[in-house]
Simulated assay, not measured.
Amino acid sequence: MTAATEEPKKSRAGRNLPAAIGVGVGMGSIATASLIFEPAIFVGVVAVAILIALWEFGNALATTGVKIPVVPLGIGTVAMLAAAYEAGTESLMVGLLLTVLGVIGWRIAEGPDGFVRDVTAGVFTSVYLPFLAGFAILMVAAPNDGAERVATFILVVVCNDVGGYAAGVLFGKHPMAPRISPKKSWEGMAGSLIGCAAGGAICMATLMDDAAWKGALLGLALAVAATVGDLGESVLKRDIGVKDMGTLLPGHGGIMDRLDSLLIAAPICWLLLSFFVDPTP
């Protein structure tokens, strides 16, 4: 095999590292640009990402015979994110309720075969994708420092991935959940905790102009949440029987494979920043 036809070399963690880094930088640049120029653009970026993830998840579930109602879920995604940006938490909750009702009504019209199965998957999807993503929108909609909150959120979760990856590759010997994610180790988890605590402290002190210790606590909480999100999607993929949810992003898989950590971490970050930065008198 010649050099021209050789497959890209993968890291010890199984990734095409140069491609993964390039895609990660590109995605981060898009998010950063949207936050700098206009927060509403960030809402659109998130909506597009969730719609693509919804399509990927629907295709993956279809291989098992599950058919989620994509049309009401797509409409509900846009409605939930827009409502969260314009009117806050209560509107996000109302959007979720209406989306669930839309999923049920749409599936009723298709007949009884597999009704419970498809509706259950559809309701799960409405919570897992657009509802959890809505908390990132709630952060960007915060007056005065919305962009800084989202930047802190994204940077700390990136620290989780980078710290966990580096420590796992260099020191990983003890699997954390071998039946779910064989390459994830306790040493990698330690790297995630250290990376997130440091990243959170720096972000809180610089971007949020607040106490570094609050950022360290935020980082520790997000490290746990992001790891749970990563393991949760690994469980989904093993249950469905796919390696990745999609192939859109070289070195990463699909959009949904990059959102797993962010989705679970978003409500935790929103809650803690609301408490730390906007304490109740």
Rank of each mutant, 00 (worst) to 15 (best):
G65P: 00
A20R: 10
S91Q: 13
G76R: 13
P8M: 12
L218S: 11
T247H: 14
R107W: 01
F135A: 02
G134R: 09
E86M: 12
L231K: 06
G168K: 00
I75T: 09
M245I: 12
V156R: 02
F275I: 15
L218E: 09
G14S: 09
G191E: 04
L101G: 08
L81K: 05
P279K: 14
A190S: 10
P178Q: 14
F57L: 13
D209S: 08
L51Q: 07
D118M: 08
A4G: 08
G191C: 10
E148Y: 06
A60E: 01
L51G: 05
G122S: 14
K9A: 15
V169W: 00
L231D: 02
P182W: 10
E110T: 15
G105P: 05
N16I: 15
A151P: 03
L248W: 07
D209G: 03
A265M: 15
A136W: 00
M189P: 00
L129I: 12
A205I: 00
A121H: 04
L96C: 10
A226H: 05
L54K: 10
Y165R: 07
I137R: 08
G168D: 00
L81S: 07
A33V: 10
I50M: 12
L263A: 15
M1F: 06
G246K: 12
E233P: 02
P69F: 12
S185N: 11
M204E: 11
G44E: 02
V158G: 04
Y85M: 11
A265T: 15
P18I: 14
V277G: 13
A225H: 04
V228Y: 05
K67Q: 04
V23Y: 01
V224Y: 01
W55F: 13
A141D: 07
K173H: 13
L272D: 02
V46A: 08
P72L: 09
I21T: 06
G24M: 05
L259F: 15
M139A: 14
A87R: 13
G44N: 06
A83N: 14
E6R: 07
I52L: 13
S185Q: 06
A211L: 09
L273W: 01
L129H: 11
L273G: 05
T89C: 05
V66P: 00
A40H: 01
M80N: 11
V127L: 14
T206A: 11
I52Q: 08
W270D: 10
I52V: 15
L207M: 13
I268T: 12
F115I: 12
